[in-house]
């Protein structure tokens, strides 16, 4: 087990109240595995990833739980100890390649900074490694492009540079927070392919944060669906797409446009909006948008329960109410 997150809670203390952006989230990632976290904006998926890195900025912070990385609890480490892990054992690539690189530094200096922070290398060796990494992620004539500034590169190129930087110290875990969202579809495919190759090459695990189910289907081994800071469903990618259980997951899958659908029907939409985090509905947080909402759902929050490796948080599958599904 590479990473084991237990009952993670991340809160933001605002003047108007406390927002629990990540609420009792537990999951594991194995060596070499690609785990996807899916959810809408505000579901807590990005906050989860930043919590792992200790990068939540005030007024937010991890309020509870354990983050066991190689059996070391990251949530107990000081910023200084975390700095040794960040960019080294766990690294991260972000959604916006256009703004995630420092505009006034040459890209080689940005990558070399990462390398020289964590590896005992001379400037010359670090430069050689930088060029090698740029070559690995598929940047043509890497030695020349290393001297470019970010604004001289396209979005796809910059995301490759980000990837080269993140992989430069051969991390055990790469957190990719919406790595393809800001890119064209053709470039998206290239970046996903790149992540796939890099996973093979460096045998690292990937935590893929996305709202794009197409990306999940293509890339992930296992999927977690998050809603309002909670995990509502978790399964391997095949099971999730073939037998989604939670009404929210079902809704998400139905709202993917199908190119071979020739009927005149409108695209399916989940009714309503994500609730205001300061005013969550009592009971299940999805209850006010759910087609199959029962009376019980508006009063109690269902527990996440596991049935044959498929976890779901919904009373429809409650052991007491549906005997057959509870059979392990």
């Amino acid at each position: 087990m590479l990473l084991e997150v237990k009952n993670l809670r991340t809160e933001f203390k605002l003047k108007r109240g406390t927002v629990r952006a990540v609420d009792d989230v537990s999951f594991t990632i194995d060596k070499g595995e690609i785990l996807a976290i899916v959810g809408e904006s505000g579901s807590g998926k990005s906050v989860t990833s930043l919590s792992l890195m200790g990068l939540i900025q005030k007024p937010g912070g991890v309020a509870g739980g354990e983050i066991l990385f190689k059996s070391q609890d990251l949530s107990k480490l000081s910023q200084k100890e975390l700095q040794e892990i960040r960019g080294n054992k766990i690294s991260m690539i972000f959604q916006e390649p256009m703004t995630s690189l420092n505009p006034v530094w040459r890209i080689k200096d940005q990558i070399m900074e990462n390398i020289m922070t964590h590896m005992k290398m001379s400037k010359k060796e670090a430069l050689a490694r930088t060029v090698e990494m740029l070559d690995t992620v598929g940047i043509p004539s890497p030695a020349e492009r290393a001297n470019d500034y970010p604004h001289q590169m396209s979005g796809g190129m910059r995301q490759r540079v980000m990837t080269a930087m993140a992989l430069s110290c051969e991390p055990d875990l790469l957190i990719a927070d919406e790595p393809t969202t800001a890119l064209d579809v053709t470039i998206q495919a290239q970046i996903l392919e790149l992540l796939y190759q890099m996973r093979e090459k460096f045998n690292m695990a990937v935590l893929l944060i996305t709202h794009d189910l197409g990306v999940v289907y293509e890339a992930a081994d296992r999927v977690i669906v998050m809603y309002c800071g909670k995990i509502v469903e978790e399964a391997d990618v095949k099971t999730l797409f073939e037998q989604p259980q939670h009404p929210y997951t079902v809704g998400l899958l139905q709202s993917i446009p199908q190119i071979d659908n020739e009927s005149d029907e409108h695209l399916f939409m989940i009714k309503g909006m994500v609730p205001n985090p300061l005013h969550m509905p009592p009971g299940c947080s999805f209850s006010d948008r759910c087609d199959r909402c029962m009376e019980r759902c508006t009063k109690e929050m269902p527990e996440l329960q596991e049935i044959n490796g498929h976890k779901v948080r919904c009373f429809l599958y409650d052991k007491a109410e549906e005997g057959e599904l509870s059979a392990k």
Binding site: Q83, N88, P103
Partner: peptide, 13 residues
Amino acid sequence: QDFIRTARAKGIS
């Protein structure tokens, strides 16, 4: 800015 978050994620002081 986003690149500040990137810099922090690199583990520099």
